Lab assay of single mutants.
Amino acid sequence: MSIQHFRVALIPFFAAFCLPVFAHPETLVKVKDAEDQLGARVGYIELDLNSGKILESFRPEERFPMMSTFKVLLCGAVLSRVDAGQEQLGRRIHYSQNDLVEYSPVTEKHLTDGMTVRELCSAAITMSDNTAANLLLTTIGGPKELTAFLHNMGDHVTRLDRWEPELNEAIPNDERDTTMPAAMATTLRKLLTGELLTLASRQQLIDWMEADKVAGPLLRSALPAGWFIADKSGAGERGSRGIIAALGPDGKPSRIVVIYTTGSQATMDERNRQIAEIGASLIKHW
C-alpha cells in the first residue's frame, strides 16, 4: 500500500482519535458579512469528516447552483462504474471539434489522439474542462443518470439537468442544476469515506481534487503551510461562485467545507476574496 493510499485508508482512524471539535460562531459572522459585502445569498456548511456531524452552517438547506462543483460527483459516478466493471479508466475516447464547448483548455489539445477516461476526469476536476465533463456525462448516460446515481446514494436534493455550459445559467428560483450545502457536503463525505467506492477509487477521487489547479484564489489562499486540501470550485452566471473541499491540518483532511453564493453584482475577484476570507476565519478558529 502506498503512503497516499495509507493516508486515505486511515482518515477515519486518525479522526477518531482527534480531540473533540467545537464550532466557532466567528466564522458564521464572516459568512454573514460576506453576504453584506456581496449583496447576495451565501450558503455555508462545515462537517466533521469522521462523524458527519454538522459543526457550523448557514442557509444549509437553500438551493444554490452547483456550477462546476458537480464534476466531482460526476467522476465519482464514473469511478463507481469502474468498480462495477462497467468502465475502464484506460479506455480512450475520441471526439471532434464539434464536441468542444466553451472553456476546454485540455480537451482542445487532444482532438487528434483523444483522451482516456482517467485523463478526462483529471481534466474535468483539476482544470474544470467543460468538454471533458460533457464527454464523461455521455459515458454514464447524461445528466439524468448522474441525478439517479445521487438518488441511489441517498441524495434526493442534488440534481443535474443540463450539460456544460448551460448548467451554469443560475436563474433565480430555478431548481435545475442545483444542490443544497448540506446535501453536497453529505454526498461528498460519502464519496470520500464511505463504502460506495473502493479504496482505490476513493484515493483516485481525492487525488484529482488535491491536484486542483484553478481554485488557488479561494480556500487555498488562506491555508497555512502543512495543511491538506482537496477541492473543486465552480463559477456561473449572475454572480455565482462555489467551492467544495476536504481539508485539515497535519497533512490530512478532517472536515468537509461547502460554500456557495449566487445573485451578486460583485466582480469575480471580490467573490473570490470573500470566500478566501471565510476560509481564513475557519482556519483561525479551527
Rank of each mutant, 00 (worst) to 15 (best):
H24F: 10
P25M: 15
L28K: 14
K30I: 10
V31Q: 00
D36Q: 14
D36S: 14
Q37R: 09
Q37M: 08
L38N: 12
G39W: 09
G39V: 12
A40W: 05
A40Y: 04
R41D: 14
V42E: 00
G43H: 00
G43T: 00
Y44S: 01
Y44A: 02
E46R: 04
L47H: 03
L49A: 11
N50M: 15
K53R: 14
I54N: 15
I54D: 12
S57T: 07
R59M: 04
E61C: 08
E62K: 06
E62C: 07
F64C: 01
P65N: 04
M67A: 12
S68R: 00
F70Q: 08
K71A: 00
L74I: 15
V78T: 12
V78A: 10
L79N: 00
R81Y: 09
R81T: 11
D83T: 05
Q86M: 06
Q88F: 15
L89P: 13
G90K: 13
R92D: 14
I93H: 05
I93E: 04
H94L: 11
Y95S: 03
D99C: 05
V101K: 11
S104F: 03
P105V: 11
P105R: 07
V106I: 15
T107R: 02
L111G: 11
D113F: 11
G114H: 11
G114Q: 04
M115K: 04
A123I: 04
A124D: 02
I125S: 03
D129G: 01
A132L: 01
A132E: 02
A132I: 01
A133D: 03
N134L: 01
L137D: 02
T139E: 15
T139V: 14
T139P: 04
T139Y: 13
T139H: 11
G141H: 10
K144R: 08
L150D: 03
G154C: 06
H156D: 08
H156R: 07
V157S: 10
T158K: 00
D161F: 03
R162P: 03
E166D: 14
E166G: 14
A170R: 09
I171E: 15
P172D: 06
N173G: 09
R176C: 15
D177I: 02
T179D: 00
M180H: 14
M184Q: 04
A185E: 00
T186K: 13
T186Q: 15
T187M: 08
T187S: 10
L188H: 03
R189G: 09
K190R: 15
L197T: 05
T198W: 04
A200Q: 10
A200D: 13
Q203W: 06
Q204Y: 08
W208S: 03
M209C: 11
E210G: 12
A211L: 10
K213L: 05
A215R: 05
L219D: 04
L219N: 04
R220K: 14
A222Y: 08
P224W: 03
F228N: 12
A230I: 11
A230W: 03
D231Q: 15
K232I: 02
K232P: 00
S233H: 02
G234A: 13
G242M: 00
I244R: 00
A246E: 05
L247M: 14
L247D: 01
D250Q: 06
G251F: 09
G251H: 12
K252S: 11
K252T: 10
P253F: 06
R255I: 09
I256K: 00
V258D: 00
I259K: 00
T261M: 14
T261E: 08
T262W: 08
G263Y: 06
G263T: 15
Q265H: 07
Q265Y: 10
T267V: 10
N272Q: 13
N272E: 12
Q274I: 14
I275Q: 03
I278W: 02
I278Q: 00
G279Q: 03
S281F: 06
H285L: 09
